[in-house]
Design a binder for these strands. Structure first.
Ligand SMILES: [Mn+2]
Ligand SMILES: [Mn+2]
Ligand SMILES: [Zn+2]
Ligand SMILES: [Zn+2]
Lengths: 143, 143
DNA sequence: ATCCCAATTTGCAACTATTGAAAATTAGCA
DNA sequence: TGCTAATTTTCAATAGTTGCAAATTGGGAT
């Protein structure tokens, strides 16, 4: 059910097995993404990566994210915030975006909703984006 | 229920009442958008507008679309196709995007799905994007 | 019918997110 | 230790959209 990206160690093996090289840049990104539930953007990952490896290029971050996505280790999601968010949680789930702090949370729906207007449409995928205020932000309402 | 953008005539009155001018450019866009269920992009509207009014600028199209959106006459939707789609149907509904022809169809859901992971999240809005093959495209599958 | 001026349009530069291309570097094997 | 294909870096280019300033104009006032 919960299908998560493989660990840095497993990815190292998997990459080499496919003829892909395991570079320090890639290893760093494996680590930054592992168990990362913040739904980071390429740029936020680049910022953190730069701190740990000054000189790493944004292009490499994009490249690696795209590679991992093609391999099915990552999911690229679009919540309408302008830039893609990357998600090591590749299980079938949805997202809630806070209008205040922009945090992205996972949402699991049990049963698909009944819909009208999809007669004849062969649904391959459905993604729900909820917007509103997260628990932290709605708790700290200024009133 | 079905809340649609007002007619060109009604918008003309509404605009003037607000101190906004009714220019030929705006009138043209009022007409192009009225009853338009194609979920057009700014650029597709610009193309059609240019045909009827050579010289109109893309900037004006964006400006007018943004104004109408702020006024609640239009809805700007993001189905992940790179550019915003504008929808004169401002009722609460969802969308199905064809992976083959990129057409965007309206979808109405009766009952919201049960979800998990939203404890404490104050949902202000939810939007579902379905992807797959539309009736036309799944009918003409090449096999 | 004309004036006037705030609103609008236009033209174009700037901006953000992402990708393309080519040169420089390097992982991993022989 | 060398070799070479894979990777990284650099930087230009692209798409969609917005910012800004100069030129134009709708529509009320005269
Ligand atoms: Mn997620
Ligand atoms: Mn619609
Ligand atoms: Zn929040
Ligand atoms: Zn189709």
């Amino acid at each position: 059910m919960l299908s998560s990206m493989r660990s840095p160690e497993e990815l190292t093996v998997a990459f080499r097995a496919t003829g892909l090289k395991v570079t320090p840049q890639r290893q760093l990104l494996f680590r930054l993404l592992h168990d990362n539930c913040t739904h980071p953007t390429a740029d936020s990952l680049f910022s953190e990566a730069s701190r740990q490896m000054p000189g790493i290029s944004l292009r490499t971050v994009y490249q690696t994210l795209n590679d991992l996505t093609e391999m099915g280790e990552l999911q690229s999601i679009d919540v309408g915030s302008g830039s893609a968010r990357f998600d090591p949680n590749v299980s079938d789930h949805h997202h809630a975006v806070c209008d205040e702090c922009a945090a992205v949370h996972d949402v699991y729906v049990n049963r698909a909703p009944e819909m009208r207007g999809l007669e004849g449409f062969a649904v391959a995928d459905a993604h729900i984006v909820y917007r509103g205020l997260c628990a932290a932000c709605s708790g700290s309402v200024k009133r």
